[in-house]
Design a protein around this nucleic acid. Structure first.
Lengths: 344, 344
DNA sequence: GTATGGTATGGGAGCGCTCTCAGGGAGCGC
DNA sequence: GCGCTCCCTGAGAGCGCTCCCATACCATAC
């Protein structure tokens, strides 16, 4: 069953290459009997169109790139990226598009990967996640006029297509919730401030705190998304018993796991001594004791929407940049100290 | 900066298309001054070769596919696939190859995805993971003469290229370790037996048990890789207190987390009442209390090796099917009840 | 009858590259 | 000085497809 091409199929079915192409691509202008004959030949030869040839002629590859830069090492310890990939693939599968994954597993890879990403004829467009401030990839994409969508909020004001969760609103909600439960010394373990998500969560939290008439009072530490950094940050906050917080908002689930461990290692109780609310809502709830109250963001939906948005950019259906924000919701469990209202 | 092609670069540099091609592809037969001139033009025009055109002409795409079929939903809760992807990308990055990810997120996707995977001109070869017995994908790949490597052990005797961890030997080691610690009623929570990995771990365990002169005595339950199934399986094993095991080998880390929870919920202690050894060695050790003793398999290395093997098949460097097995090693922590010998 | 329009089909051109081959020039040995 | 080889370069063909246009045919309208 050697490779066979359009011409050959045409020959076998007694029609031209063009007609076979029409059948393959579902053009309506083909007579039923011809279509049937051609389809029979295709079936019995096992013919499959050659993707590269098609791409070259049509200037469309049917491939989207998903770029996940920076420390990929730690990446999959966080369920976030897995969920995002799941969302993206669910959309690309539905659109008959294939997904190329660009993971930079080292800083040094960056320079060898970027050319691939922006290479014409490989992908039709790119979804970019976890962009750092001033990411060189972004400007390269713009320069190459490669369509792209950012997952997250772009750091500068320039208009680009992007999809994000409402980090700011969610964090604000968390702060207010803790305040409403009567906590007064509410601390923050912030995600890294070199990411817009981190920045937004921090600012949203401070905003909510202010709205509740509370002050942060120096109870602030910064982590780097990892469990270990959450634990270290909590240890910092607990360092002086006199000024110990009675509640902490932790900027991500994983950091919260570490923070919780620090609380317990210090012989304190969560939520009695220190209430905790985290962000992401992505961990299997039973993974911690008490279970985490968390601001849930719809990660898979963000990924799915990003893929669909990219598709419409590629199709030139939408042309003016838009920033899509998904709402977050507070999932109350035990770590915040309020009676559970929602078991999800 | 509109699209520019080889011909155009040639025109600007005063040479032919062919010469530019040689420069781009690093052919040695180009005079230094011409090379320099061409490279200057390339740099200033921002020229990038068109991947599809190159693929069409050279019959090489520079893309490898990674296929992860079946229940993708639960996929990323298990760090296994993340690690595997990391390993594969580390190799493909080094080889200047791009990775196409094929995730079937529903059974129904399968039929729409397979054609993409075996499509000529899209990928040069495919790495297939988590194959079920009698996977239709495999026969399609063979039929399309698409090079492929299986991660895991192929279920039938036919010769194919594959890379696996020594599931059998690892499980055997686990059984013997527990026996050496003086446990006599050693149970098994087996991975699903519709996977060769599951089968191998189960058989290896039984083998090790027999070598230690022990019998399984009905202390066997089967899970489906999930935490919840591990917990349910352990509950089954604990159902009749009279015949309770004093040790259990759990076929995966995630199931072990569930099993551990079941032990603790039953008011028993691990390792005092029931010692635990699991398989994978992939979870952050601090995630459980006590920390899990586990048979560690080098997942990332398996992925990396699979990608490299695929590359040599594509290059026709290797032609006779081989099955590569990576050794596993027992990482002793607290859950097995022996004094820790290794902190990794 | 001719004019008009829609539909089914074929053929040519071309997408941007690689690969093979031919040819010109330089360098070498005798 | 001639022939040989080796290196560099250019030109042609062709990868398998899509897209556009020309053509042939049929149906309808006047």
């Amino acid at each position: 069953m050697a490779r066979v091409n359009l011409e050959e199929i045409g020959r076998l079915a007694g029609v031209s290459r063009s007609t076979v192409s029409r059948v393959v691509n579902g053009s309506p202008n083909v007579s039923p009997e011809v279509r049937e004959r051609v389809e029979a030949v295709i079936a019995e030869t096992g013919y499959r169109p050659h993707a590269a040839a098609r791409s070259l002629a049509s200037n469309r590859t049917g491939v989207f790139g998903l770029v996940v830069p920076s420390a990929a090492e730690t990446l999959f310890d966080d369920p976030y990226f897995g969920r995002l990939i799941l969302g993206v693939t669910s959309a690309t599968n539905a659109m008959q598009t294939t997904l190329a994954l660009f993971l930079f597993d080292q800083e040094s890879d960056e320079n060898s990967i970027i050319p691939q990403v922006v290479n014409p004829g490989l992908v039709d467009g790119v979804i970019v996640t976890a962009t750092q401030m001033g990411d060189p990839l972004i400007s390269q994409l713009q320069q190459a006029t490669m369509p792209f969508v950012i997952v997250g909020r772009p750091d500068d004001g320039r208009s680009m297509f992007s999809v994000d969760a409402d980090n700011r609103g969610g964090a604000r909600m968390a702060a207010r919730h803790l305040a409403e439960l009567g906590r007064t010394r509410i601390g923050l373990i912030s995600p890294p401030s070199n990411s817009t998500a981190g920045l937004d969560r921090r600012n949203g939290f401070l905003e909510g705190l202010a709205e509740a008439g509370l002050r942060i009072d120096g109870l602030i530490a910064e982590g780097n998304w990892t469990e270990e950094s959450g634990r270290a940050a909590m240890e910092t906050l607990l360092a002086s018993p006199a000024s110990r917080p009675d509640a902490v908002f932790v900027g991500s689930d994983r950091m919260a796991v570490g923070a919780l461990r620090a609380i317990q290692e210090a012989g304190l109780s969560c939520p009695d001594d220190i209430a905790l609310v985290s962000f992401d809502g992505i961990l299997p709830p039973d993974q911690t004791m008490p279970r985490l109250t968390s601001v849930a963001q719809p990660v898979a939906e963000v990924g799915e929407r990003a893929a669909r948005l990219l598709a419409s950019i590629v199709d030139s259906t939408v042309t003016t940049a838009e920033h899509i924000v998904f709402p977050t919701r507070l999932v109350i469990r035990e770590s915040c100290g309020s009676p559970p209202a929602d078991g999800a």
